[in-house]
Design a protein around this nucleic acid. Structure first.
Lengths: 127, 127
DNA sequence: CATGGCCCTTCCAGTTTGTGGAAGGTCAAG
DNA sequence: CTTGACCTTCCACAAACTGGAAGGGCCATG
């Protein structure tokens, strides 16, 4: 499989696949002309990566997840711990974002939004 | 006022203030020795920036907000439109993050988290 | 066989919003 | 005069790609 084929099948753009190769997340073989050759196993890793990234895991965490995945002697507790740490980070982001949203929505509600210059949003920022 | 003083008063680190100077968000005067000299007005702009950034506005949006703030003929509708666009972005992020959270929490719940290798989290990623 | 068009490669730069550090000038106190 | 705390600029790095340029490969058609 060449890179555009595996891109279609994994749902990742070729640029991203090259990037993952650069940082060692995959090690596809090379053809005599220098083209990358992807095995089913490479494709599998890439699809795994796409899903882990979609869940918001960092690339470093994806590296760890892949390592755990390929370790038959892993403890599921280790995977769960990784996921819990990530969940805590998501919860923190949700809280911060929610606070922003509340403040911003209040300010928007209090602004007339007409042609006059008076604006509670700017007044609050300049407070 | 020198940079560390205005840093304390605005709540921004000197490095960040220099950065805002570099990108033209502020234009402090310079002393004969090359040191930046900050006026009350510079301080005010920096505090404004800190609060706008804390609400999640991008640096570009902060630039526009500052321009609106200093424009006596602005329409509050323009400020409100900027804020609404930003709010929509926050809502989108909240939704994406909420979806991630749900999926991740479900996976975590389904994982025994013991010393055995079997793990629904990895199974889902490898699906 | 040459040409076109699409694929592949590497390398460099840019994105965003700063942060860390090095090298060197300045200033006030002792 | 020295010491320590400032200040300056400049370069590099962070995350996770994305865009583009320059150059080579491969296949099919004329």
């Amino acid at each position: 499989m060449n890179i555009s084929e595996v891109g279609k099948r994994s749902g990742l753009p070729p640029k991203t696949i090259r990037f993952y190769d650069d940082i060692g997340l995959i090690q596809p073989k090379r053809d005599t002309n220098g083209y990358r050759i992807f095995s089913e196993s490479d494709l599998h890793r890439l699809a795994f990566l796409r899903r882990a990234r979609a869940l918001g895991f960092s690339v470093q965490e994806c590296r760890q997840l892949l390592a755990l995945y390929h370790d038959d002697t892993r403890a599921s507790a280790d995977v769960k711990a990784l996921a819990r740490t990530h969940l805590a980070r998501i919860d923190q982001q949700l809280e911060e974002l929610g606070q922003m949203r509340r403040t911003l929505a209040d300010l928007i509600d209090s602004c007339a939004g007409d042609s006059r210059p008076d604006c509670p949003i700017l007044r609050d920022l300049a407070r």
